[in-house]
């Protein structure tokens, strides 16, 4: 499984730290993410998962450390460059679709926004791409002119995914993408995500507190506690044979359920 044909990691993180005043957000985080790889980040509430993700995605400035994306130093990039990158080669899927969608704009407009942002100026083509992506996330094409507010939670989340993937990003950040959804809706979304990740060869950093989600999606797993990485490795290995006491606790508490 873990074949690594590419010579260099897509995302390389070293010694990353973010503080909120004196409180630790996250600290000493280092890892490499390879093309086509899904990295799961798990840990209890307040362990620093969202903080880490927002630093990686450029939503927050870390206090220490380095982030390289495809060999480029993200923290040394100018703001326009960084923002362009986050609209083209990167994407961010929020837990709450309301944070990632424009609720007052049609589904087609939501999907088309990133295309228009990078210069698409042909209405017919933008619409065709919108229809194609609605299909890929299993939303009927007839809904293309409806606003997301008329969609169910699961549909909104799928629309958010379509809106993000339309520019064919290489790296996608996801913060609890299945968080607020019913179990059956979650399962369908997970299947969809798994298919998209495989078909598009996406690299993903996936934050969740749901071990079932990482078991299904993540090739590798990183366990965080109090802002620090306590264990990382191949997902099945970490879950089946946890080394750190905290991971053992985490895994056993899930197995008991």
């Amino acid at each position: 499984m873990n074949t690594r044909p590419e010579a260099a990691p897509l995302l390389s993180v070293r010694g990353l730290a973010k503080y909120y005043g004196t409180r630790i957000g996250c600290t000493d985080v280092s890892f490499d993410l390879w093309p086509g790889e899904v990295l799961g980040i798990v840990g209890e509430s307040g362990s620093g998962k969202s903080t880490l993700l927002s630093c990686l995605a450029g939503h927050q400035q870390p206090d220490r450390g380095e982030i390289h994306f495809d060999g480029r130093d993200l923290l040394a990039m100018s703001e326009p460059e960084r923002r362009r990158l986050s609209r083209t080669e990167q994407a961010f899927v929020h837990q709450n679709p309301r944070d990632g969608l424009r609720m007052g704009i049609s589904a087609g407009g939501n999907i088309g926004e990133r295309l228009m942002a990078v210069g698409a100026r042909n209405y017919g083509q933008i619409r065709e791409t919108g229809l194609d992506w609605l299909g890929r996330v299993e939303i009927a094409g007839a809904r293309i002119d409806d606003r997301p507010s008329a969609f169910s939670g699961g549909m909104q989340q799928r629309l958010q995914i379509a809106r993000n993937l339309v520019t064919a990003p290489r790296l996608v950040f996801m913060d609890e993408p299945t968080g607020g959804l019913d179990v059956s809706v979650q399962a369908r979304l997970l299947d969809l995500l798994r298919g998209l990740v495989r078909d598009l060869g996406l690299s993903v950093v996936l934050v969740t507190h749901d071990l079932a989600v990482v078991r299904l999606l993540a090739h590798r797993l990183m366990v965080m506690k109090s802002g620090q990485v306590v264990e990382q490795g191949v997902t099945d290995q970490v879950l089946d044979d946890p080394q750190h006491g905290y991971t053992q606790l985490l895994v056993s508490s899930v197995l008991q359920v």
């Binding site: 407009g109 088309g112 926004e113 295309l115 228009m116 942002a117 990078v118 698409a120 100026r121 933008i126």
Partner: peptide, 18 residues
């Protein structure tokens, strides 16, 4: 400042769609 004008075309897109 960053010439991020994609949103302007989203408005025109919405017009045509509607």
């Amino acid at each position: 400042a960053l010439e991020e004008y994609g949103l302007m075309h989203v408005k025109l897109y919405e017009d045509i769609a509607r």
